[in-house]
Design a protein around this nucleic acid. Structure first.
Lengths: 339, 339
DNA sequence: CTGTTAGCGCTTTCAC
DNA sequence: GTGAAAGCGCTAACAG
């Protein structure tokens, strides 16, 4: 079965009895073309079912109307939401999104980013664990690019992200307002920029409120990581530490922990309050519903697109945008029980 | 700020003092090239930081090493898993994947698919609600393509999917084995092919087991849809129907329902058993953990890639692959309470 | 084994 | 207002 030669602009020109240039003109609505030619060309295009070759267009224009998004793990709800927002916003401008999942392998991020950039007009980089030095180096080679969820100064690269420092502080305030003073923080991956941000927020509030105490337990970013921390958390709650509330790195960790606590008969929020971060879709559907910090995932994706579009057009880059997470107080956190 | 002209194969050739053809040869490892030339060209490439233009390559080869995946909603866990599997498998062969989210707008699927196909070498179509007639039409225009999760015969298009008919039957058997005979089915979107498959499975088992009764309640495919069905379900459980178990279209619907039941003080599985479908990552972390039918999302993605690769290579298409979901019996389903 | 040459399909001056 | 012709960067004959 021979693969048919696709119809080209030349076929259309011949069919319409005009020059390729004219076809090209009506195709792009450029210059002024005789209405009659427009008509006949349009008819020929329809008759032949012609669609222009993107490859040829790219070659001559240097553009391919595509952007790439590099993520460590497509199964992370945060990146999914951003991808969705980006994809839909870009589509409105005729752009498509190429995804590249680095499978959490930091060492591969550089080549993947460069390769992806090469097929596209710009990239958005979600690389929370890439060392800063390397990040700067990569950015200088893949520009234009937008970075998500990590600070990066003096590089001319727009950043769109979440104000984790402030978010975690607000969350601690919420807990403190409920009377909790002995907290546990389930830390995310140590190399993660957003984890460092959260820890910075924690340090700030600790400095401001000497009445608080925060015990850190290293975990990760997934459901299992929270689940596995169960014993340690129970120890902190029932042992000398006497913790009454837990802040998890994100909702997945929080939900994993809640599962573990439930299995051990630890009541939430009766015996210990639990709060997450990100407000994933399922957060409000857990039992009890999880208190979390809501971040506008889709909107971040849209903002990323605005920046990318500006960069592609050669426009000036906007300043970084940081979204302040909004507290979603639900039933997994409650007043400290002073029985 | 002038955008610098990218370095081309001509620059490399000049720098190395050889012809473009030679550079092209070492680039592609084609034919045999003098080791000394290989060396000097390699050096020049490195020195100039040259990377070949994908657009030019595409134009001449007719390929662009990219495939597209069309999905109704990127936030659906099922598609996310498939996308992840596809993306990682394709990457191993040097292919990237373009995503196109149709925002659940069935009317747009056709143009999006055709446009996406035009930028890529093949597409994978997840369009559960597209009318079959339209689907056939689209497939004939975008080939090569792979269809996910819906049957489609005599079209030469490979299908990779889940055996919903069998899955739902197995689930009913599980419930029946626990003594449930009066069941409720929370139906998904009516136009959804996979919902029709489930209903077919239900009809089959109903024919085989006259002792069973299944009441259908129309819902949807999201968390809220399940949540909103709460009242109707409670009615079916406590009213004349006397249902003792609920099968939801998918896990999201099941989890939404469980939230509603919990708010109304209906015990699961004490008063009513609840089962989902898909086994999303969070299913085992709900309270109680949700009984579900597990489907190998990533593996489906990998299989899709195998098919796509074969099609792109012009090889024969494999037969349809249907994965049989595996029962994950958890605590949301229990023996019927004959108090 | 290497260089020259002719396109791939399209846009875009440049004449007419 | 329209057509002819020159490339965009690369690969693949074809000579040498």
């Amino acid at each position: 079965m021979e693969r048919a030669r696709p119809t080209t602009i030349a076929d259309v020109a011949q069919h319409a009895g005009v020059s390729q240039a004219s076809v090209s003109r009506v195709l792009n609505g450029k210059a002024s073309v005789d209405p009659r030619i427009v008509e006949v060309v349009t008819a020929s295009i329809a008759a032949l079912g012609y669609t222009p070759s993107t490859a040829a267009r790219s070659l001559v224009s240097g553009r391919n109307n595509t952007v790439a998004m590099i993520v460590p793990d497509l199964e992370n709800p945060l990146f999914q939401g951003i991808l969705k927002g980006l994809s839909r916003a870009a589509a409105l401008d005729g752009y498509r999104v190429l995804v590249a999942d680095t499978a959490e392998i930091v060492a591969d991020e550089e080549v993947i980013a460069i390769e992806a950039r090469h097929r596209t007009d710009a990239i958005v980089l979600c690389a929370p664990r890439m060392p800063e030095k390397k990040l700067r180096d990569v950015l200088s080679r893949v520009a234009p690019a937008v970075v998500v969820n990590r600070p990066i100064d003096e590089t001319g690269t727009p950043v769109v992200g979440v104000d984790y420092v402030r978010g975690i502080r607000d969350l601690v305030e919420h807990l403190a307002g409920l009377g909790h003073t002995r907290l546990v923080y389930l830390a995310g991956p140590a190399p993660s920029a957003s984890n460092r941000e959260r820890e910075r927020g924690l340090a700030e509030i600790l400095a401001a409120r000497p009445d608080l105490t925060i015990t850190t337990i290293a975990t990760g970013s997934a459901l299992d990581d929270g689940y596995r921390a169960t014993a340690e958390v129970i120890d902190a709650v029932r042992g000398e530490v006497g913790a009454t509330a837990v802040l998890a790195f994100n909702d997945l960790v929080a939900l994993g922990l809640m599962r573990g606590l439930s299995e051990h008969g630890v009541s939430v929020p009766g015996e210990v309050s639990v709060a997450g971060f990100d407000d994933v879709p399922l957060a409000s559907f857990s039992s009890p519903p999880l208190t979390s910090m809501s971040v506008p995932r889709s909107e971040i994706g849209e903002q990323v697109w605005q920046r990318l579009r500006a960069l592609i057009a050669g426009a000036a880059v906007d300043h970084a945008v940081l979204y302040s997470p909004r507290l979603e107080a639900r039933e997994s956190t409650g007043p400290v029980d002073r029985a």
